[in-house]
Write a protein that binds this DNA or RNA. Structure first.
Lengths: 104, 104
DNA sequence: ACCATCCGTTAGTTGACGCTTACGTAAGCA
DNA sequence: TGCTTACGTAAGCGTCAACTAACGGATGGT
């Protein structure tokens, strides 16, 4: 979840996500939309994939990418719950333990 | 909007936001919840304030912080619209012509 | 077999970020 | 006026993130 939040914090990655939200696109076509080099986009795609926000499918030499609606929906719901605090104290307690570990 | 997204990408700042979501708290009390030094929290509060996610009120030597529900709601709605793409359709349509050329 | 195409990966660099220490500032009180 | 409290700010440091250039692997065509 943390990975997904960090992923969408990057403007370029949000743009990529929007590109593959409704349709599948090969990496090259995605890269063509931007002014940066192709490897840069490839790295962004990797971040998105490891965050579960995008899935990869191979077709010959090409790699097709598409947004994963379920993970995207999961993230959206997390943010909803964050503001309205429907998750409440259970999550607070759960995160408290992780914090104790990380900060020790 | 970009500033708000970057702000909530940081776990510590999400924690701070949740602390001041329902009630006002002085900077010192906020800092007391964390293992890092007080200046570190002060810098996080600055980021949150400049992102419009938090408002500051002075009371003597103290500075009281509280989440700004309107900005928070604005952010939540942006994310909703991002997934459902109520924002993007106009631009998507505008870009469709270019895509057709580039990807053919 | 050879070569071009389509990509990912690996250094290596630069800039941003989170943190700490040290210092500055404004308000309240003796 | 001096001292204390409650903060923010500045400088410096280590680390991470985004980028480019160069290289490597897999596929498909000839």
């Amino acid at each position: 979840m943390d990975a997904a939040l960090r992923a969408i914090a990057e403007p370029r990655r949000r743009e990529i996500l929007r590109l593959v939200r409704t349709r599948e696109l090969p990496a090259g076509a995605i890269a063509a939309h931007f002014a940066v080099t192709r490897p840069a986009i490839s790295q962004h795609l990797r971040v998105l994939r490891e965050a579960g926000l995008v899935e990869e499918r191979r077709d010959g030499t090409r790699r097709l990418y598409r947004a994963r609606p379920d993970t995207v929906e999961e993230l959206r719901r997390f943010l909803d719950d964050f503001w309205t605090d429907r998750l409440g104290r259970l999550r607070d307690a759960a995160e408290a333990k992780e914090r104790d570990k990380e900060e020790r």
